[in-house]
């Protein structure tokens, strides 16, 4: 059971976002970079599978130098191998180019299951997994919250509005992992120390035949902070909650026309 886990390094979700001088990217000063939270579910699922069935977990990222920390985090939690495709600054948010790079980086590697997060926090696209599956010509199941892997096939539960689909799928396949699938483990100190000694395989994106920025599928024209919220009508309701409730319902009906 060999698993490839695709991981991405993203700003800590508590980060304050500032716009950079070019007006197209964020100002990276002061940002703490972490493994994208949904990728933790993907890694955990892969670790549990290989622990139960043998085989290896390979973590792959396509990103700038700082993305290596995300790979070290994966190694510390138990991934066997790590591959770093260096680059990715010009293709941030360009899901199709990212999927193309990953698909090329997979050439010659054997896998039964490819695992992604449901969404890369930050670019918030939720697309790379499905695109990668199409490029690898394998089936996929997205938004997985339940997973059982048998001999040559898997059964997955996937959340949709008001329900859950039960999907059966032959291997090799790709899944995108959602909260609820498992409880990701933390890296123990021993793992962190051992990870420092494990090698990270480096791949130059140019060696995969991709020239970054030459043919983009996602062009950022501008990046802006949200417009400041206009002052709301806030009613003091500590002394007369019933009166405040009546006033609010009245405003929602007559002013906001929301009810």
């Amino acid at each position: 059971m060999n698993c490839i886990v695709c991981v991405t390094s993203v700003p800590d979700t508590a980060s304050v976002i500032k716009i950079g001088p070019d007006g197209k990217k964020i100002d990276e000063g002061g940002i703490k970079w972490i493994l994208s939270p949904f990728d933790e579910y993907a890694l955990e699922a892969a670790l549990q599978l290989t622990e139960a069935k043998g085989g290896e977990v390979t973590a792959v990222t396509y990103g700038p130098a700082r993305a290596e920390a995300a790979l070290r985090d994966c190694l510390a939690r138990g991934a066997h191998q790590a591959v770093h495709v260096a680059g990715g600054e010009a293709t941030l948010g360009d899901s199709f180019t990212i999927a193309t790079v990953l698909a090329k980086a997979f050439a010659g590697r054997s896998y039964d299951l490819v695992l992604c997060g449901v969404k890369g926090v930050g670019t918030d696209c939720s697309q790379v997994g499905q695109m990668l599956a199409e490029l690898l010509a394998i089936p996929h199941v997205a938004n997985v919250t339940k997973l059982e892997v048998g001999d040559g096939s898997l059964t997955a539960g996937r959340d949709v509005e008001g329900g859950q689909e039960r999907v059966e799928c032959p291997l090799p396949a790709l899944i995108t992992c959602q909260k609820g699938l498992n409880e990701p483990r933390y890296a123990a100190l021993k793992g962190i120390m051992a990870a420092k000694k494990k090698p990270v395989e480096k791949v130059e994106v140019a060696s995969l035949g991709v020239t970054e920025g030459a043919d983009p599928f996602y062009v950022v024209r501008s990046l802006e902070l949200p417009p400041p919220a206009s002052e709301g009508t806030i009613i003091k309701g500590e002394d007369d909650p019933a009166g405040a409730a009546a006033q609010l319902v009245n405003l929602l009906r007559s002013e906001a026309k929301a009810i």
Partner: peptide
């Protein structure tokens, strides 16, 4: 918030 009540 567009509207709000400060209260319990």
């Amino acid at each position: 918030a567009d509207y709000g009540i400060v209260g319990d």
